[in-house]
């Protein structure tokens, strides 16, 4: 009981700057709980993206580094290659990871870099004011797709978890959601598994989390959850797409 209400040691005693009802806070908490439970805080290095979570370093109590927009996986590679004993994760939004940083994440995943990526998919650029992201849904209105995403011109939204699981290199790839408690329980399990694979030095591990951005979707927090469930979840299917055991067993 008490466990759920106690603040993880890995999480700072500090209010976040996130908008009311934004799920970034939930995700921070899950990551912090997992790091506490695995007792790796003292050898963990987090990498902040450029996006709303650029200030994530204020909310965690372990070493943190701020990368350039999209480059977190390359920075993580640098850390992990010279200090394989460290536990390293990147925390990235969909603009950061799937747009400007697509090359970095693809090559890190394909090399099987032994770090973990937490990928926050909220279908827009949050920080800069709601522009279209590669994950924006067809016909979804954003500030740079005022008439809705036109798939004839900019293609369909990218399913990053599926894309990364297509590589031959072993990896752990999962997509979960953080929209309601029932999803959050599973999301935490996936995050924990991802870190465990890293600790076992097994493979690249990646958890995509379907999230919200009430502010830029122009919805209340409650409406945003409903919209995400009705619109995002049918397209971004939840589940484990790839597991390092797949290859070894099969």
């Amino acid at each position: 009981m008490g466990k759920t209400f106690q603040k993880p040691i890995s999480l700072a005693e500090q209010d976040t700057h996130y908008c009311p009802g934004c799920t970034h806070g939930v995700i921070h908490r899950l990551v912090a709980e997992v790091i506490d439970e695995l007792d790796v805080r003292s050898r963990t290095v987090g990498i902040a993206p450029v996006g709303c979570a650029v200030l994530a370093y204020n909310y965690f109590t372990f070493d943190f580094l701020e990368a350039a927009h999209g480059r977190a996986p390359a920075v993580a590679t640098g850390i992990k290659r010279v200090r394989p004993d460290l536990i390293v994760f990147t925390y990235q939004g969909d603009g950061d990871l799937a747009s400007i940083g697509m090359a970095e994440i693809i090559h890190a995943a394909n090399r099987g870099e032994k770090f973990t990526t937490i990928f926050v998919n909220n279908a827009v650029y949050g920080m800069t004011g709601g522009q279209m992201a590669p994950t924006t849904m067809p016909n979804q209105r954003t500030t740079t797709s005022p008439l809705g995403r036109n798939v004839e011109e900019v293609g369909m939204p990218i399913k990053v978890a599926e894309l990364l699981s297509s590589f031959e290199t072993p990896g752990y790839i999962s997509r979960q959601a953080v929209l309601r408690p029932k999803y959050i329980v599973k999301a935490k399990k996936a995050i924990k598994k991802a870190f465990e694979y890293q600790m076992q030095n097994r493979c690249f591990s990646f958890v995509e989390l379907v999230s919200n951005c009430p502010t830029n979707w122009g919805l209340t927090p409650v409406e945003s959850i409903k919209w995400a469930e009705e619109t995002l979840l049918p397209y971004y299917k939840l589940g484990e797409f790839k597991n390092p055991d797949d290859v070894e067993e099969g």
Partner: peptide, 16 residues
Amino acid sequence: AYPITPQSEVAEYLSR
């Protein structure tokens, strides 16, 4: 273009 503050309004304006 690619969004970045403080000039994203150019892209937002021209997208319309």
